[in-house]
Design a protein around this nucleic acid. Structure first.
Lengths: 66, 66
DNA sequence: ATCTCGTGTAAAGCATACTTTCCAATACGT
DNA sequence: ACGTATTGGAAAGTATGCTTTACACGAGAT
């Protein structure tokens, strides 16, 4: 799963820590997602889409491999 | 988080076992999600939306409580 | 040179998602 | 009455998401 979180955050001109605070997770969680270490939970994906006023699919790109 | 998975599955006229097979998880996982025992991962949410040809937001309804 | 800010990363621990195996209950067809 | 199909759920284990604490690095400002 790929994501454009870094781009969305840059457009909003906020830091990882600020975004983390806005969506209710730790800074490390935002960092880990931006760096592709793991995918967010569905709940966090909803929170991020809500914060950026977009759809989950606008931030996250899922490409099945079957 | 609420979901309409049971309704979508009924419309598609398939069993929990068949849906589980289609999206690559166990039948118990589909059952647990329908019964609201836990939310799916983002990846599984994408798979379900893909199977039903709809958006994640069409199946899952997230209502923040802050 | 020092301070602050933003980011990357690691370790340990907790919470949640998911698995396999198994059993119970209901409904339906024979 | 019996077999099969579908659903609900329990128990134990593995994998993943997330937290806290802590440290390192680079860039910019003083």
């Amino acid at each position: 799963m790929e994501n454009d979180l870094t781009v969305w955050r840059a457009k909003a001109d906020i830091t990882q820590a600020e975004l983390a605070d806005q969506v209710g997770v730790s800074r490390q969680t935002i960092n880990a997602i931006e760096r592709g270490r793991y995918d967010p939970s569905l709940e966090l994906a909803f929170e991020l889409a809500r914060y950026f006023d977009c759809r989950i699919e606008d931030i996250f790109d899922y490409e099945p491999d079957d």
